[in-house]
Design a protein around this nucleic acid. Structure first.
Ligand SMILES: [Mn+2]
Ligand SMILES: [Mn+2]
Ligand SMILES: [Zn+2]
Ligand SMILES: [Zn+2]
Lengths: 137, 137
DNA sequence: CTGATTTTTGCAATGCTATTGCGCTGTTGT
DNA sequence: ACAACAGCGCAATAGCATTGCAAAAATCAG
């Protein structure tokens, strides 16, 4: 299975270092998006900055996308496989649960077309729905 | 006109202090949402914390709403007149210009209904569109 | 294999933003 | 005048993001 993880990194042109294998392994086990602090706690003891740079590298190479859910800490989650280096296609809704404070990707839920006033041009859209998740009902 | 500003505060049950009159006056002059730092610079020399508490009070009383546009600093803008203390109705789209970095309310552009998976319940929606604004075309 | 080069890593340090505590001040009501 | 209270200014703290730099590890060239 480490083999498997290594392949994923290599296919994305990411040098599969020990630390990166650990990070990707951890990400694969998550059911929701995680913050850098979550990652740091999950892989304790590891250097926060190194983990930060691993996530940045993954993001740059199209392996993860970052989510600003308004909690103050950026969250990270694996991309669907159609993302490429420098260009993400994560145009889906993100859900933040006000109870368990977990952030989830809803890849099946695409962001609807947003009409804008004349002269405005859309480049990206960030849609966060906050409420109660299915586990907290 | 100071009279006018004072009335607005009083109607929202906000004690019209000198500092709050200045803050509201400044807010009324803006064409886009502003950060605490913008306010601080605009009203220089004023104590940042006092301004912060003025904005928080305004928000609590339904006079302004805060916007998390992903820039790292919370932005504030006056509410449409239907907001009340403790309950905002600012379900409109916000636009962040990647060029001039200004954040605008688009009160005419309501957030569409977002469908969620079974078991998820919506409480609020934050929709930020990023792109080029009409002044920066 | 060995020295040079590039990549990763770990740690220190910095910059912002948000938020709270607390004492001083100025206002208000008795 | 005095007590009670609201508002203000300053200090301090906490958390997150980001960069610089030097040691360590992996890669490459001769
Ligand atoms: Mn996502
Ligand atoms: Mn708005
Ligand atoms: Zn939940
Ligand atoms: Zn603009």
């Amino acid at each position: 299975m480490t083999e498997n993880i290594e392949v994923i990194l290599t296919q994305k042109n990411i040098n599969p270092t020990a630390m990166r294998l650990l990070v990707l392994d951890f990400l694969l086990k998550q059911s929701s998006a995680i913050s850098l602090t979550d990652l740091e706690k999950g892989l304790d003891p590891s250097d926060r900055i190194t983990l930060y740079r691993a996530l940045k590298k993954f993001e740059e190479k199209g392996l993860v996308h970052s989510i600003d859910d308004g909690s103050g800490a950026t969250k990270y989650a694996l991309c669907e496989n159609d993302c490429e280096a420098g260009h993400h296609h994560d145009l889906h809704v993100h859900f933040f649960c006000n109870t368990c404070r977990e952030t989830s990707c809803l890849p099946k839920h695409h962001i609807p077309q947003i009409s804008l006033p004349d002269g405005f041009k859309t480049e990206e859209v960030n849609l966060i729905v906050k409420g109660i998740c299915n586990k907290c009902i």
